[in-house]
Design a protein around this nucleic acid. Structure first.
Lengths: 236, 236
DNA sequence: GGCTAATATTTGTCTAGTTGTATAGTTCAT
DNA sequence: ATGAACTATACAACTAGACAAATATTAGCC
């Protein structure tokens, strides 16, 4: 899918550097060799990018001296994205949720280990979609030990809130004990729910919440739409 | 008779060559033309084999350079104290850094705000590549206030270590005050550095480190290769 | 200080090699 | 007939290395 040539993306990057005044008019750019090292490409590829910018009159090269900024691009799009910022420290406190499924089934190996159960123990599973301004931002699955919270599904149905449902089951507070995050490409079904093209970058987050005594109460997996969500990691 | 296609047998042969360490991670394979000659087939048939192996993540091709043997994922903990060297060592891999560029320039708007400066104030910028066992896992850019740390670039050049360089400038300890993470598709240049296909999912992380008094000392942006890194968010 | 000569940098150009992609044709089994 | 596997050829994009030409920097000398 490599559609844009490397030299072009380098030219774009340098152009934006100039547009955002990291290099000012008259400044000398790093040498071709330095740029090549910085971008990890051959000098010729850098030269191709500079040639393109030179044709647009953005820069001007002097043999033996260097490459200099001529003018600042006039119509450079300074795109600001609107993103939804979610704090990872308090999972399950997202406004706007849509229940996709509430089921009770046997735990798989990963779930059992995370919750301190044996494989095959029954768990409640809450599949849902997180929304912000009506837009889907995350697809999550929360898994709870069924034996400990027999009535959880009822309260979940009513409130849609994990926090309140757990409160109703006697868990006044809970904290996140572990979180793992990585980037992946969206599968077909994930893409569908999150209204993304298949393969679009998503944040895949796996975490465990525990009560104050350290007993795990929830094992959650969430797939966030990368282009709509920024996770804000708590600072202790 | 052989019902398996030629390309598949070639892929198998090359795969076992890698498994038996006749080619080691990071090594360059013979050129497609050479492989085609030795196996007595057309270059396209070899390419078919290599494409298959590439999909399995076994090898990675760089246009104009060659085909290289690829490698496996790493854990990267993020918490109050983010120290690259310790992080990678803890996961049993050999950490490494490659300086891509050390520059001093004017701060753009985002950098100025994060560091508590005015736009246009001078900053030191450290562009680099993080390696684990020699494989690129992250592309980072660290920005420091130049006025406060005039001699930072020198120490950075010597040690390559942010921690030590800051120590030399009188910052005995620093703490991460904010981290934001999102998922994106790799740009062409990022993909190049991280040896990924363009558009491959990457973790984009933005963070600020501050000294014990709460003054920001570093504004860092990192792009992690999604398939090679999982961020582990540890409390405390 | 000011000049020149030597040396190091930096851009410009050239040749060659390698992977990516597109098009067209051949062989062969079902 | 049709499609899959393979061959053949050509070109684009990028890498690699070398060398020349213009400029910048430095050292020595007056």
């Amino acid at each position: 899918m490599s559609k844009t040539p490397i030299w072009k993306s380098i030219a774009l990057r340098l152009t934006s550097d100039i547009a955002e005044e990291r290099y000012q008019t008259g400044d000398r750019l790093p040498t071709e060799a330095q740029l090549a090292a910085t971008y990890g490409v051959n000098r010729h590829t850098v030269r191709r990018a500079l040639a393109d910018m030179s044709e647009q009159g953005l820069v001007h090269a002097r043999r033996g001296a260097g490459v200099f900024v001529a003018t600042r691009p006039t119509d450079y799009p300074i795109g600001k994205r609107v993103r939804y910022h979610k704090n990872i420290s308090a999972s399950g406190k997202i406004p706007g949720k849509k229940i996709l499924a509430l089921t009770t089934r046997a735990a798989d190996a990963a779930e059992a280990e995370a919750l301190g159960l044996s494989k095959g123990d029954t768990v409640h599973v809450y599949d849902g979609l997180s929304l912000a301004d009506g837009q889907p931002i995350g697809l999550f699955q929360s898994v709870f030990p069924a034996e400990r919270f027999p009535d959880l599904l009822q309260t979940l149905t009513d409130t849609q809130s994990v926090t309140k449902a757990l409160q109703a089951c006697g868990i006044a507070d809970y904290v996140r004990v572990s979180t793992r995050v990585t980037a992946r490409g969206a599968t077909a079904t994930q893409a569908l729910h999150l209204q993304l093209p298949e393969g679009a970058p998503v944040l895949f987050s796996v975490g465990v919440n525990a009560d104050p005594d350290g007993n795990p109460v929830e094992y959650g997996r969430t797939v966030f739409a990368g282009e709509r969500v920024t996770l804000t990691l708590n600072e202790g």
